[in-house]
Amino acid sequence: MDDNYTIIIADDHPLFRNALFQSIHMAISGANLLEADSLEALLKVLEKEPEPDLLLLDLKMPGSNGMSGLIQLRSQYPDLPIVVVSASEEASIVSQVKTHGAFGFIPKSSDMKSLIGALNQILAGDSYFPAGAIKNSAACDDLATKIAALTPQQYKVLGMLSDGLLNKQIAYDLDVSEATIKAHMTAIFRKLGVKNRTQAVILLQQTES
């Protein structure tokens, strides 16, 4: 395949970024490759290059708590083709990634041949998910749908709740008023169908298990 694709690799591990670089160059000659090692760095890259052909996204890197990076990116860039590349290969994770709008999922354990095959399939316009990896669970899909209903800011607040921070601490870190955080909490509880912060945190943890 020989095209002038623009591809962004977002991963905080330099060795794995290099491995992806090599795989992409073997699959596609002439690709324009950009990289980011955190969600903040990725958003800056997207400001300069808002319409790349593909984003290869690691779920776990600075600024991204589980699915929060994917949710935020899907909200801000609804047409951006995102493929998650992750070491978390459980069926529940793959199912959530698909529910949250990713175009594909490539396990980090993939060998070079599988990786190149997946990239070629994706760039040809077909989604790619490992055979048998999608979990056909109504409960999992329902939970993922609830989480997906949260705004990026609400998801960020929920993640900070999960880290054990108090409303006052969250308000300080996000540079907003405590009343704003309480309003976010009310919306989060309503969307998740829970009554308190403990139940909300338990639901979030279920999405990351």
Rank of each mutant, 00 (worst) to 15 (best):
E89L: 04
I147K: 00
V45W: 07
I106D: 01
P78S: 06
S127Q: 12
L204H: 12
I24K: 04
R197F: 01
K44T: 14
M160L: 14
S38H: 07
L119I: 15
D175P: 04
Y5F: 13
P62H: 02
L204C: 05
L39A: 06
Q199N: 10
G125H: 05
I181S: 05
M160E: 13
L57W: 07
F103V: 02
A144Q: 07
A171M: 09
G132N: 03
D126F: 09
A149E: 08
I7W: 05
L43Q: 14
R74C: 00
I9G: 09
E40V: 11
K146D: 03
I170S: 06
A200W: 03
K168T: 14
L115V: 06
Q72D: 03
T180N: 12
S75P: 00
R17I: 13
P50E: 04
R17C: 05
I71M: 06
R197K: 15
S75L: 00
A124L: 12
M1D: 10
I7Y: 07
L158Q: 04
K191L: 15
E90R: 15
I202P: 00
G117Q: 04
F129G: 07
V83N: 06
D2K: 09
S162N: 15
H184E: 09
D79M: 10
G132Y: 00
V176Q: 11
G101R: 01
T6C: 04
S92P: 00
T186V: 09
D111V: 11
L15F: 13
V97H: 00
G101N: 03
K195T: 13
I122C: 04
I134A: 02
